[in-house]
């Protein structure tokens, strides 16, 4: 699909959240889409409201349901993205006392696109005091020839609760993956809680070897930050050996937080491991 038709289809499928034609098209790579979608959840004293729900580019946002105090927003892909050269940002905030869950309707597929230049995909997640924010997207697939820089920037207030699940699939079935560099940077109450960068696919040196992935093609993490979880216990090992997929759930140093890290040969085994880790994290 050509860049112009991608934009046209985005306009066709987006709704009133998108500014009228002529008032947009910010500068970026000539072949890339530049888009910033925003979700802001607030608490009105009774329930969580969504004062801002701004779809943009490939991100079509839809309020899914209200479940008691919480709000759920679904992100529906409005076009194929990210492609090389795209500049995509998701800015998600749960203000004080708000409870917000954000999901995606389908896997995100990084493709080569019209240029070999990297696409950027920045996800900013902010949770205020006593807020509860869950980021539970479907997997990100790094297709052959794609080139993606993904960044999670997470800012958490001391009393907030937070869950992030991140799954990466390296290549569609039986193909070499693209190049994917992903960083997660989490601050809690102003202090660094977690800072990790991973880099997979050619031309990264050693990425597929015995110290990094050992030929696994699905890799993921589950981060749970919750002042109420019991983090004093020791690590929990999941899975046998390293060939068929394995994971560890363990406490982080600078906060009431647990991190599960998993590698697996397939995305379904990866999800099983992360689901198991999730169950352990919330077992008292």
């Amino acid at each position: 699909m050509s860049p112009s038709s991608r934009l046209a289809s985005a306009r066709a499928t987006s709704d009133l959240d998108v500014p009228p034609a002529g008032a947009q098209e910010p500068a970026g790579h000539p072949d890339g889409v530049r888009a910033t979608a925003r979700i802001r959840a607030a608490h009105n004293g009774r329930v969580t409201t969504l004062p801002q729900l701004r779809s943009d580019g490939p991100f079509h946002l839809r309020r899914m349901r209200t479940d008691g105090n919480a709000a759920t927003v679904g992100i529906i892909g409005a076009m194929s993205a990210p492609l090389g050269g795209d500049r995509l940002t998701l800015d998600i905030t749960a203000e004080d006392r708000a409870e917000l869950e954000v999901i995606t309707a389908a896997a995100t597929l990084a493709l080569r696109g019209p240029t070999t230049e990297a696409a950027t995909y920045d996800v900013r997640l902010t949770a205020g005091e006593h807020a509860h924010l869950l980021w539970l997207p479907q997997p990100l697939i790094s297709a052959a020839g794609s080139n993606l820089r993904q960044t999670y920037t997470v800012e958490l207030a001391a009393t907030s609760r937070f869950v992030l699940r991140e799954e990466q699939v390296l290549g569609r079935a039986d193909e070499e993956p693209g190049h994917i560099v992903s960083r997660i940077l989490v601050h809690r109450a102003g202090r660094p809680l977690l800072d990790q960068q991973t880099a997979y696919g050619a031309p990264e040196p050693g990425w597929d070897g015995p110290a990094v992935l050992n030929r696994h093609r699905a890799v993921g993490q589950l981060l749970v930050v919750d002042p109420r979880v019991h983090v004093r216990r020791g690590p929990i090992l999941l899975g046998e050996g390293i060939k068929d997929g394995c994971a560890v759930l363990a406490p982080l140093a600078n906060g009431p937080a647990l991190l599960a890290t998993a590698v697996a040969p397939t995305t379904s085994i990866l999800r099983e491991l992360l689901d198991e880790a999730h169950a352990h994290a919330f077992t008292r």
């Binding site: 990790q196 991973t198 880099a199 990094v212 090992l237 560890v248 890290t261 590698v263």
Partner: peptide
């Protein structure tokens, strides 16, 4: 830099 490896973290706990 914060470059990391999932397997080194997992196998260290194993």
């Amino acid at each position: 830099p914060s470059a990391s490896s999932p397997l080194l973290d997992i196998t260290a706990e194993q």
